[in-house]
Every structure is written in C-alpha cells, then in structure tokens.
Write a protein that binds this DNA or RNA. Structure first.
Lengths: 231, 231
DNA sequence: TTATGGTATTCTTAATTAGGAACACTAGTC
DNA sequence: GACTAGTGTTCCTAATTAAGAATACCATAA
C-alpha cells in the first residue's frame, strides 16, 4: 500500500493526501506552487489546502502570499488516534447494553478480522490459553502471547517449528500451514483456516460442546506427540 | 454528537452505523429483520451488512437464514485504533524526510487544532514549560501537564483561579478568559486566543525573537504578581 | 397467498475531482 | 507609463464516484 492510501486512512481525500506528501518533501509552499508540483487544478488545490488545515494536517503561514506547512506526521497521526480514543470512550459509555450472546456458531471471514478476534481473545484471557497453530501465524500474535505470559496466563502451544517462549509450554508437531485452533479459559473456542487474503474463514463459539470437542482434540494431539517422542 | 456520528468516525457509513446500533440493542438479526427495524431499504440493508462484516463490525451466523451479530464495541474500536497505530508506524518509517522548518510564524486556527498542538508541545517538552492560561483551558490539558511533571519537567503556571498541582509552581492572576501563552524548552512559543469554536486562532513559532519576547512578558508578569503580593 | 429471506438493477443525492474564467498583484521589458 | 507574463486566489461549471432510495425478481415456508 502506498503512502497516499495510508494517509487516506486518516480521513484525508486522495488529493489532500497527495498535497500533504508534497508539502512534506518540499517544505512551505503557496497554493500556486502546490498546484504546479502536484498537477492538481489550482482551484482544487486551494480547496484541499483548506481541508488539510481544517483537519489538522497543515498550518497557515500568513504573509504577502499565504504559505502552508505540514503538521509533522507523528503529530498528525497521534492527534487523530487520540481523538478516536476519546470517541471510543464516549461510545463504550453510551452504547445500549449489548443483547446477550447466544451460544451460536459465528463465522469470521477475512484474515484481518480473524487476527483481530484472536488478538482480542488473547488480550481478554484470564487463566488459560491452548493454541495449536502454524509458525507463520504464530509470529503475528506474538506480542499478545507475551502480554498474556506477563499476566501469568497458563499458555500451551502446539506449532510446527522449534519455538521457544519462556513461560509457555511448547510442543512441536506437523501442522497444516494455515490451520488454527484456539481455546481460551475453557469458555471460548476458535478453529479454522487462515490462508492469506479474503479466503480465510474461521468458526468462533462459546458453545460448550464445541469447546469440549476442541479441548479433547488438543489434548489427544499432545498425548500423541508425547508418545511419538518415546516418553 | 450522537452515537451514529461517533460510529462514523470509525469508517462506517451512516447506514452501517445505524444498523450496528440496531444489532447491538436487538441482538442477532437477519437482514430482513434489520430492514424492518431500521426502515432502511432491504437492498441497502444487505449491502450495509456485508460492509459491516468486511469492516470487522459484525460477524455472520450461518444457518437456514443468515443472521448477523455485532462485534462488541470495545473490540471494534480497539481493532480500528490498533490498525491506525500500525499504519502510523508505516507512515513514520516511509514518509520522506520533512523539509526543515524555517523560523516562520505559523497560524493555527480552530480550538481542536490548537489544543492538539498544545498537547503535543507538552508531550515533547524536555526540560521546562512556562504556561499562562485561564482555568477553563487549563483543565483541558491537565493530563499532559501531569505527564510532564511525572517526567520531572520544570513547570510554571499562571492562571486565574486558585489552582494546586503538586510539583508545579503556580501563580494566580487575572487572565482574559481565553488567552494562552506557552513556552516550551525556551525554543517553542505559542500565544493567542481560544474562544470556543472556529474563531480560535493562535500563533506558533520557533523564532528566537518571539520566544524571547514571550519569556520576558511572562517573567514580568510573575514579577508583578510577586510585587502585588507584597513579597 | 402472504411473509420471510436474498439479489439485481435503476435512479437520486452527496462527495470528490477536473477544468476554465476572472480578478489582483508583482516584476520585467520596452 | 504601458504592456506582458508569472504568481496568487476565488468563483463557477461539469464529470465521476460513492452513498443511499426504491423497485423488481426469485426462492422457501406456512
């Protein structure tokens, strides 16, 4: 993803993002100079510069000719993130009470959504985590796993490569490349496949039967690993 | 600002936000039920539900009829904020080197943009902060001031009401209600007016002359306060 | 037949972008 | 001083894209 697309995630239009980049690398500029450098029509350039100022991405330097200077990228991003934190608090406080979950079976699609769910399950874990997953996926959730260990979670991992994580119990076994199975606090289960891209699909549930099924499956897998090691 | 507007800050369209709220208070629903409850056309309801799923705000429960359930608001917001943090890191790493600032005089307009700048100046302060400001504005930046004190910043404040902040030196004097003057590390200065709304306008600069001018002004003000107290 | 469930299509409105014209000011040239 | 070109800004029109409204069609179950 290129810089323009990344900037657009911070609520800038494509032209605003383009102009922001130009201000960044060229320094203070008049609207006329910006239009020449970017090829954007002068009319739209002035509109977008006003938008950048209103959105906190640029400042005005008043003079014979008005010049614009970019807000440092760290500041601009942090300002937006700080605002979202504040909005999040307002939302959490004011949203209606969530209707209680049933013990249904929830389909989660898309690698990003699945990883988000896994990370949240790990961050909310209180006592125990059983995880069977391929190494490539394991690296993506390492920070959350470490966070869990620092909270004295019991953490059991089965993965396909030799892997060390102080405080965790790690077993090595052949894994299909994209498969994942996760149990948290014996109450939540997630199982499925995370190939790269939008084909990823997992099942998540708090259903007792599914949780028990997955626990048995993981325990048996661990037992088989021990037997094959001649213990 | 109502919940729908707040949710829209997390990249949901107005209809997606409305549907998310309905899922939240009513629980798992089919697209047909959502359309009836919200009054949104069925066609757009299905489009928006797909959008919610793609954006990580809802999950699918597969069955004879497809049902949708909302992602908890904490999770949804945190996922989005986490993503923006990641994007911020990519941006900071890949943006071109910022063209060096000149010592110009930068106009910052809008209460929100000014408070953002003040907060960032406080967060980046290394040694000393001199601040002359009315009480109402002071409360808005209190967390950043406390953060500064926890980093052993020297903090001197002039404000219009009796105000206590352990570790800071506080002077009391009459202040125009919206005026602010701030000096950070003897290198950055900000001065101006923050009435509520878009009329707010401040001047920020790293220009040595302006910094010195403001320092002298604040020192004189402190001296006058001491004299009036009969010290 | 009616209600529920889902998809495709068309139309309208709002937002974004493209482009031209008009006006003002400055500097250089004759 | 008059003229021209470049710089700087605003107003206006038009095209394209995104969001939302409405309708039609199909399938299933009661």
């Amino acid at each position: 993803m290129d810089l323009t697309e990344l900037l657009m995630h911070f609520n800038l239009t494509r032209q605003e993002a383009t102009i922001y980049k130009t201000l960044y690398s060229e320094g203070e500029l008049t609207g006329y100079e910006v239009a020449k450098l970017t090829g954007i029509s002068r009319s739209n350039t002035y509109t977008s510069l006003a938008g950048l100022v209103a959105k906190g991405a640029a400042y005005v330097i008043e003079g014979a000719a008005t010049r614009y200077t970019p807000v440092p990228i760290e500041e601009f991003c942090e300002n937006k993130i700080r605002q979202l934190h504040q909005i999040k608090q307002d939302l959490v406080k004011n949203m209606p009470v969530k209707k209680e979950d049933t013990e249904g079976y929830i389909t989660i699609t898309g690698e990003k959504n699945i990883l988000d769910k896994i990370k949240n399950m790990l961050l909310e874990a209180k006592e125990r985590v059983y995880l069977s997953v391929a190494q490539n996926t394991l690296t993506l959730i390492l920070p959350e796993l470490k966070d869990g260990l620092s909270r004295d979670l019991k953490l059991v991992i089965i993965t396909n490569y030799s892997f060390e994580l102080t405080g965790a119990t790690v077993f090595q076994a052949e894994k299909p490349p994209h498969q994942i199975r996760l149990i948290v606090d014996s109450t939540k289960a997630l199982t499925g496949d995370i190939p790269e891209g939008e084909n990823a699909s997992c099942l998540f549930s708090k259903n007792k039967n599914l949780v028990e099924l997955l626990k048995e499956s993981l325990k048996n897998e661990i037992t088989l690993i021990d037997i094959m090691k001649g213990k």
